[in-house]
């Protein structure tokens, strides 16, 4: 019978297992390994710097709160997308993203280039209650983050691990991570206050401030802060 060749596999579990392992390995080897060795798959853009200590803290909060369940960070090369969100996403822009945050569902708008689109104070109000800015929004409010002081106990450790994984931080940046984060936090809080909002001491050092610092960096990877 034509399928006799398969009989040995059906009675020899080791052979069946080895052939199965081979079948599932090939696709992965072809798709996953070459990109690491191909020139130009992902080079940092000229002048691009990794996230500052505060921005990295904000990014990690973005993961914790699951912002990526509703927001993509990947603008496709389609006219309707570049018109709405700005230039399409380049591989080089995400070389300091661990993990990547392209997203798979756009319940809210793409955020890949949201940096600089609004003042810090806009974000402050928006996180406090999105419906004060956009009554039809279904984004949850994140008012609780404004009452949580940002935990800086792991800040330099974060940069240390990222440096170990290949991000270009200097020893000095790692050593000064907390002071650096404090300074950037003060700058963000000042810009919010300048727009007439009152922030108490907790609010001015809260998780929301770090999140805003991160968002303002999106799409602006090559600019000094």
């Amino acid at each position: 019978m034509a399928f006799d060749w398969h009989r040995p596999l059906e009675s020899d579990s080791l052979r069946l297992t080895l052939w199965t392992a081979l079948a599932i390995a090939i696709g992965g080897i072809v798709l996953l390994i070459p990109p690491f060795f191909m020139q130009g798959t992902a080079e940092p853009l000229p002048g691009m710097r990794p996230y500052s200590a505060l921005e990295q803290e904000g990014r990690d909060l973005y993961l914790s709160e699951g912002c990526s369940t509703c927001h993509s960070q990947q603008i496709r090369p389609l006219k309707s997308e570049t018109d709405r969100y700005g230039g399409y996403s380049l591989a080089g822009e995400s070389v300091y993203d661990r993990p990547f945050l392209f997203g798979s569902r756009r319940t809210g708008p793409d955020l890949a280039r949201v940096g600089g689109k609004y003042p810090d104070s806009w974000h402050w109000i928006h996180f406090d209650d999105p419906r004060r800015i956009e009554p039809r929004s279904n984004m949850p409010d994140f008012a609780f983050m404004a009452r949580r002081p940002l935990d800086l106990s792991l800040t330099s450790r974060r940069l240390e691990v990222l440096k170990f994984l290949g991000h270009p931080y200097s020893e000095l940046e790692i050593e000064n991570a907390v002071a650096d984060a404090e300074a950037q936090m003060a700058a963000v809080a000042a810009s919010i206050r300048k727009d007439g909002l009152t922030l108490d001491e907790t609010a001015a050092r809260s998780e929301t401030i770090a999140l805003i610092a991160y968002l303002q960096r999106l799409g602006k990877m090559t600019e000094e802060r």
């Binding site: 690491f36 992902a42 822009e93 995400s94 300091y96 661990r98 990547f100 994984l165």
Partner: peptide
């Protein structure tokens, strides 16, 4: 990084792939 925090061994487009 700590007991309940880590960074992916891969970054950006490699991580996505």
């Amino acid at each position: 990084v700590s007991w309940m925090k880590s960074y992916s061994a891969y970054a950006g487009i490699y991580d996505a792939n």
